[in-house]
Amino acid sequence: MKHLLSTQDLSRANAIRILDTAEEMSAVGDREVKKLPALRGRTVVNLFFEDSTRTRISFEAAAKRLSADVINFAAKGSSVSKGESLKDTAQTLSAMGADAVVIRHWASGAPHRLAATDWIDAGVINAGDGTHEHPTQALLDAFTMRRHWAKLAGTESEGANLKGMRVAIAGDVLHSRVARSNVWLLRTLGAEVTLVAPPTLLPVGVEKWPCAVSYNLDDTLAQGVDAMMMLRVQGERMNASYFPSTREYSRRWGFDDNRLRTLDRLGMKDTIIMHPGPMNRGLEISAAAADSPRSTVLAQVRNGVSVRMAALYLLLSGDTREPATTPVLATAGTTPSTKEAN
């Protein structure tokens, strides 16, 4: 794996390899010394053209647990003020000897540009680009779902997929990189995905996506859902007439207390409630839902570090073998030698 740019071009074997590696990494997080020497001497740059403290510290923790050197680079420039040029920044990082660049950018496709041009030779991880993709978020969501799904089946997570799992994703799909990455990845892993949104917040062309589309959250819940993922709704959408008011939005498309009770009433005792964060409590999700035992919000944050460790490890370990032939780390839970990292 040279880059991790999107989940759309991620094969099932590679996706499962990342998730399995993340399981091994997760075991490290449970130890007293939460650190592996695997990426000692390698440099990971967190290149953020858009603020996201959550994502940055998650990647930073992941890189540090693998003993990599971490440089945080908050680039200036936004969609309105031009600021730092991507090309100049990339060439600067290249000159500094970056081995991997974790890039967050407000412009869709910016990570692809880094990977496709000769501006920098490092591996590129997309940490969220515009309204395009956020592959590590989808991977941590899938990791969280897979653990839950395997536990219900009474099997191991490793090697498993999400066959038969019914996942509903509700909210602003049009502007959501999380939704896009999840649709592709969950489909690849065998889950059945339904998008639930007001028609104004679905992209033209969504009918070609490998998922179902619903305008009615209650109908979708009534048909049975194993994982309910709520997407953050930006208040500014209201000013652009995507919906009449936040109150109407949360009544029709928010996961409120009534809908939380509906899960109980319909006997869906094992349904989990997910959110990529940060949450607008009271808008797309009620406080009771966010804090209920069904909520996986904190588990998602925890799993994010494991998944990002796995992504960094697979990018930088130089292991380009086809998956499913050899385990990535010699044995789960054991500390690999630094040799494997080079």
Binding site: S108, D129, T131, P203, G205, K208
Partner: peptide, 18 residues
């Protein structure tokens, strides 16, 4: 608007020019 609005813009997350 960034590109033609349709199947491809939906996937790429680029604002559509219908």
């Amino acid at each position: 608007a960034q590109m033609n609005e349709g199947e491809v813009s939906a996937v790429l997350g680029l604002a559509g020019w219908p």
